[in-house]
Amino acid sequence: MWHYILKRILLTIPTFVGIVLLTFLLIHQAPGSPATGSAGGFGESGVSAADHARLRAQFELDAPVIVRFGHWMKRVVCFDFGQSFADGRPVSQRIAERLVPTLTLTFAIIVIAFAIVIPIATYAATHPGQPVDKVILAACVGFYAIPPYILGMILILLVGVALNWFPFAGLTSDNFADLSTWQKLKDVISHSALIGSCFLIPLVAYLVPFVRATMLSVLKEDFVRAAHARGLSHRRVMLRHVLPNTLRPLLTVMGLIVPAVLGGSVVLEVMFSWPGMGRLLFESIHDRDYPVIMGMTVLTAMVVLGVTLVVDLLYAWADPRVRYA
C-alpha cells in the first residue's frame, strides 16, 4: 500500500512541472504585456516610451523567457509567488481572498448534488423503463444539453430580473458590514444561489444517468439476489449492499468533477460578477498579470492533482480488489 502511494505521488511531479512550464511559456508568448495590458500597441495604451521602458525593466520583461522561468521557479520553491503587477499586493494574499468562496461553493455543490442525485437515481434504477424513469432520463439529457452560460442567462433574466427572487451580481449586498452573522450567511447564500444552480443543474443531469446505470448493473449481480435470499430487508440490501457498490465507481467521477467545476467557474463567475478564483484568473489574464496567473496555475494544478491522488487512494480503500494493483 505505502509503495503504491509513494509511486503515485512521484508520478504527479512530472505532470505538475509540465503544466506549470507550459502555462508559463504560453502566457509569456501571448501578445500584450503587463506594461501595456492585453490591448497591445504602444500608441494606443497612452503609456509614454520612458514609462514603458521603466515598467519593462521593473517586470524583467526583457530577459529571455527561460531565464524568467528560472527566476520564478527559484522564488516559488521558497513559496514566494511575488507581487501582483496590477496592485502590488502579494500574489498569495490576492489568491487567498478568492480561494475561500470558490472552494466553499465547489464543496457545497458536490455535497448538494449527491444529496439530490442518490434518491433520484435510486428511484429510477429500481423502476427501470417505467414512465417516471423515462421522464427523469429525458429531463437529464435536456438539462445537460444546455451550456452553463446560456443557463446562467436564463436564470439571471427569469429568476433574477423577472421574478426578483435572488440577487445575481456579487457575493454580498452593499450593507453587508451592518448585518448580523446569521443575516450575513443568508446574504452570501442568496447571492450564490443562482451561480450555484448553474453548476448544480448540469452536474445533477450528468450524474443521475451515471448513478442509475451503475446501480442497475449492481442490482443484477448475484450477491444482491443472495442478500435477499438470506432474509435481509429490501431497505438493508439497498443501503448496505447496493449503495456502497454503486458509489465506488463514482469516486473516479469525483476526480473529474472537481477540475470541471473549478474550470467552469471562469465563465460563470465573470457573468455573475462573483469574486472567486475564476474571475481573478479572467482579470489577471486580461491585465497580463503574470505572477497572479502563475500562482493560480500552481494552485489549481496542485488542487486537481491532489484530488486525483486522493480519489485514487480512496478507490483502493473502497474496493479491496484494486488495493495491490
Partner: peptide, 19 residues
C-alpha cells in the same frame, strides 16, 4: 427467507458482497 428457506448459489464468490 433465510429463516425457513435458505439458498446457496452456483457462483459462490459472486454471491458475496465484494466490498
Amino acid at each position: 427467507r433465510g429463516r425457513r428457506i435458505a439458498m446457496v448459489f452456483q457462483n459462490p464468490i459472486g454471491s458475496l458482497n465484494p466490498v
